[in-house]
Design a protein around this nucleic acid. Structure first.
Lengths: 119, 119
DNA sequence: CACCTATATTGACATCCATCAATATTGCCG
DNA sequence: CGGCAATATTGATGGATGTCAATATAGGTG
């Protein structure tokens, strides 16, 4: 194998060399672990639908009982998903009387889009 | 409980009613299932780091042997993650000689950002 | 062809996660 | 206070997933 340093800027082709670590390490393990929390929250189809329904709801909010029927899921499961979305910073909860109303955290989706660019 | 139709535009408060399905159903189950594939691919810290290293690599590409060491993972595991990223449409693979070079699919991150807005 | 290197695939295993049933909590109303 | 309605929590369970060891494939070189 031909030796090749990290500062070598040649494009590597078939007859060239490989396995030269780049100078830029990319995302650290800590940054990656932080970013992944949001994507994990988005990694369930029912949670995507929850976000969608909440966003489309009256005044941009919806209560749990609005969300159980369209998803064909039990109430505890919906509460579970909502908790994950709140923990990820995507939804916020406001209790009014017996009901809990969920709404999008302003700017949260835009913040995720920015995270994507920074990857 | 006070009856309330779906076309009622009042804001629901403590002394009001709940459980009125919205006219707009939000994301369908099929759309959600399709969108979730990409977010699942982004839901692993090592895969985020792979994307980051590939993007920062020389000519925006990197081969598998560039990726094994910084992640402290075995080569089969790295290949496994790369496959998931390719299947999700985030990376593309080009084989040159013995080596396989991976690079970002142009516009893929921007497309995900657009997906987020459409949720 | 024989051998080596880089990458991919397979199988096994431990862990995580979505879901539900059952139960607890909270708040309203009589 | 007693009861009811809405939501949250807990425990259990089946299925998905990340990881590795072992093996297979493909391409280059002698």
């Amino acid at each position: 194998m031909v030796p090749m340093t990290a500062s070598d800027t040649r494009t590597r082709g078939t007859d060239d060399v490989c396995c030269v670590p780049t100078a830029v390490p990319g995302l650290s393990a800590e940054e990656a672990a932080r970013h992944v929390l949001v994507f994990k929250a988005l990694s369930d189809p029912n949670r995507l639908r929850l976000l969608s329904i909440v966003k489309a709801g009256n005044d941009g909010e919806a209560c749990v009982c609005d969300l159980t029927a369209p998803l064909d899921l039990g109430q505890p499961t919906v509460s579970h998903h909502l908790r994950i979305l709140v923990d990820a910073g995507l939804l916020q909860r406001e209790k009014r009387g017996t009901w809990a109303f969920y709404s999008l955290v302003p700017g949260s989706l835009e913040r995720i889009a920015a995270t994507l660019s920074g990857i």
